[in-house]
């Protein structure tokens, strides 16, 4: 649980670092994508700290090229 709070704190820190500048420069689209990516990153990182079973991206190679190898 403590590590999850740590991840949320990192995400909050990143938001605090980037968001004010983006809002000041009125970069709405950039802000939307930034938040989307940050949510994905935080979700994945949170899942990792909770020891959830996440897929191995290199297994994708097996799916894609299993027929050839």
């Amino acid at each position: 649980m403590a590590s999850l709070i740590g991840v949320l704190a990192i995400a909050g820190g990143v938001f605090w670092l980037e968001a004010p500048g983006l809002l000041k420069r009125k970069r709405v689209k950039e802000m939307v994508w930034f938040v989307s990516f940050l949510l994905i990153g935080t979700g994945l990182y949170g899942a990792l700290t909770l020891e959830a079973k996440l897929p191995n991206p290199f297994k994708l190679l097996e799916i894609m090229f299993g027929w050839a190898a």
């Binding site: 990192i10 990143v14 670092l17 980037e18 500048g21 983006l22 970069r27 689209k29 950039e30 802000m31 994508w33 930034f34 990516f37 940050l38 994905i40 990153g41 935080t42 994945l44 990182y45 899942a47 990792l48 996440l54 897929p55 191995n56 991206p57 290199f58």
Partner: peptide
Amino acid sequence: LKLKENVMLTIPMAMIMMVFTVTSTP
């Protein structure tokens, strides 16, 4: 995505990469 800047994506992308690096090396 026609974004006028890309630096704000650096940290979230690194978070995603970090997670997949850990999961890709069991």
